[in-house]
Design a protein around this nucleic acid. Structure first.
Lengths: 359, 359
DNA sequence: GGTGCTTTTGTACGCACATATAAGCCGTGT
DNA sequence: ACACGGCTTATATGTGCGTACAAAAGCACC
């Protein structure tokens, strides 16, 4: 039958003829209760269908055993049928990214005995989802730009918060980024030095994406180091870092050179893999060969990047590690709330595949 | 500053000169408090860094606003460096599956104002992760075979539980499955009738996988319907439904026919996409062409299936939908605890691509 | 049977908030 | 002057469990 009014410690205590303290001990520290008593209690609990109330425990013990994650979900949660039915490509970028963080955090959390509470951020009144999460966890991670800084300011005074993959908006928070700039610089250097390419076009994204910005900086640095002209802004800016936008960007770049006398770029460097994959498709449609006619690169190292034809040269980003590290930082800070704020930069690595002309 | 001792309603009430009840109202039902009073309270809260305690709220209101998910994680959580560094392929099968459920549940949960608490199941004493989750949520979903039936029996008497993708172990629970048998039967029929294939080899998995079993039943039925010999067991059984195991299975099948005089099968039907993808790689390595020399099919319809060469004919399974439906069932049952147990079977659809000889 | 310990169990209070109920305020109508 | 009604806020109690401290029960030994 369905759930009935929930039994409490008192019910179990009464049924097994002990006090509530003993019932509590059986669950929190079984060894502190004589085996015989423990059995009595556990049997009564089984018979009654007793499950300890997490809320009551949390209240009494002042800890929840749960860590949280707030991430953005660009997809409209109401557009379910369309998205689910077609597994819309446009979703994949964000999805893969946050999914991997979730998985990384879940694993690391489990190692430390925590469960994971996740919520895509949503703007709202004083009762935003963020506040809800914040009240139910011992600490949590926030993907950049998902929670208003003002809210974070308040919340971070009450519990540990670690900021992921973005600018450090609040300087007393722990903070993790990946080496976007270094990675793109190294990738660009590879194209220039090892493949002798000169006319490079960087495809960025909306200005607000700090990742895309940092990667563009790396691109600039490599150009400068090589003595090439240093563009002050990306050649093209996509709106959403999706496959569709990547295809559009590639088309735009080619159109630009076909009509006019401008020479076609020798390489397109995309701010992420999704766009690069879309570009590969667009190029194939136009009969432009990769890498013979033009080199293409991405950034992130998502699984797709290895499976497309040609396999995509990219910069592998340890996304899952990002989630794991977030948990580690949270756990460490819970153990030592007083320590100085930590800022980590996770290393990335250039993955050379066929799309740039490598093996 | 690190987190300090958390301010409570009392602190906010005192600072803003109202009672704690008013503070509570401001958060739970802002409109029930005069705007002027509300502002006073909110400002005090901001100054103090007040965040309502989810535990206390849960206790007092007897609801948490959180739904849960228990799923299996076959990966060893301690093997972090190896797995994270290489993004091991072997992980992907499970990962994609549970990740999609997580995403589906998260979206649907958010639509209904819930957050999602996730935990990979872990055996343990009376304090297993499952119990922890159960105590902190208003209801939760369980992937088949992740929680001992005995535990579920107890927990389901206290709160709604919906069982996903597996046998209905407890008959008073809500339950969702996908049409595994029908899907594989239809797929097999397609190979037999439309491509004229006769020597079919089904690659299953460890016996305990109910999904693989159900799919094999569909395979059997199609063979029977077509008047072909009906195998009583899969041609090969993989251990883990991973790419690596799929490759091994493909090799095993080919080796078997090469050495001996046994004719090579005309088609390999894998119990899931991951194995099929691994098989494609193995076949390519051996110089066996797909679909000219042999047809290959999968099951699940993961994004990869469309990207591999050749694109994989498979059965699309609405995994994300599974998660969404789980939430819907939970929400409905929370609204009406008395209603009869629901059992859903989600439809699947055969996706014909090049790997079977289509298009 | 009593003594000095150790182990096991019980009592009582606190955790932070929700909410039912009561009280207060203010303007209106009698 | 007083009762009334609608709106706002305060008081008091309940929520289920953890735990310090106290009490009791074992237990070994004299």
């Amino acid at each position: 039958m369905g759930p009935v009014s929930a039994p409490t410690v008192y019910d179990v205590a009464e049924r097994s003829g002990v006090s509530i303290a003993t019932v509590s001990r059986v669950y929190r520290n079984p060894d502190s209760v004589r085996a015989q008593t423990r059995e009595k209690v556990m049997e009564a609990a089984r018979e009654l269908g007793y499950v300890p109330s997490g809320s009551a425990r949390g209240l009494a013990s002042r800890t929840t055993g749960v860590l949280g994650l707030c991430f953005p979900d660009y997809a409209d949660p109401d557009a379910e049928s369309a998205a689910a039915a077609s597994d819309a490509d446009d979703d994949q970028a964000v999805m893969l990214y946050s999914d991997q963080i979730i998985r990384g955090m879940e694993r690391a959390a489990r190692r430390h005995g925590y469960a994971l509470l996740i919520a895509a951020s949503l703007d709202g009144g004083p009762e935003s989802l963020v506040a809800k999460v914040a009240g139910r966890v011992d600490g949590f991670a926030v993907l950049a730009r998902t929670v208003p800084t003002a809210d974070l300011e308040v919340i971070s005074r009450r519990l540990p918060v670690v900021m992921l993959a973005g600018p450090r908006e609040i300087d007393h928070l722990d903070h993790i980024v990946v080496a976007n700039t270094e990675g793109e610089r190294e990738l660009t250097r590879h194209l220039i030095e090892d493949h002798g390419l000169r006319r490079l076009a960087f495809v960025g994204a909306e200005e607000e994406s700090p990742d895309a910005q940092a990667r563009f900086r790396g691109f600039q640095e490599a150009c400068r180091d090589a003595g090439l002209p240093v563009p002050s802004r990306p050649e093209v800016r996509a709106g959403m870092m999706t496959q569709a936008e990547g295809a559009l960007a590639a088309d735009a770049l080619l159109d630009r050179s076909e009509g006019t006398g401008v020479e076609r770029p020798e390489a397109m460097l995309f701010a992420n893999d999704q766009m690069a994959v879309g570009a590969l498709q667009a190029l194939e449609r136009r009969g432009v060969r990769v890498p013979e006619d033009i080199a293409v690169t991405g950034f992130d190292g998502i699984p797709l990047s290895r499976l497309v034809r040609p396999p995509l040269t990219t910069v592998r980003q340890p996304i899952r590690r990002l989630g794991e590290q977030a948990v580690e930082l949270l756990v460490q800070r819970l153990a030592d709330p007083g320590r100085a704020p930590v800022s980590l930069e996770l290393p990335v690595s250039v993955t050379r595949r066929a799309s740039c002309g490598c093996g």
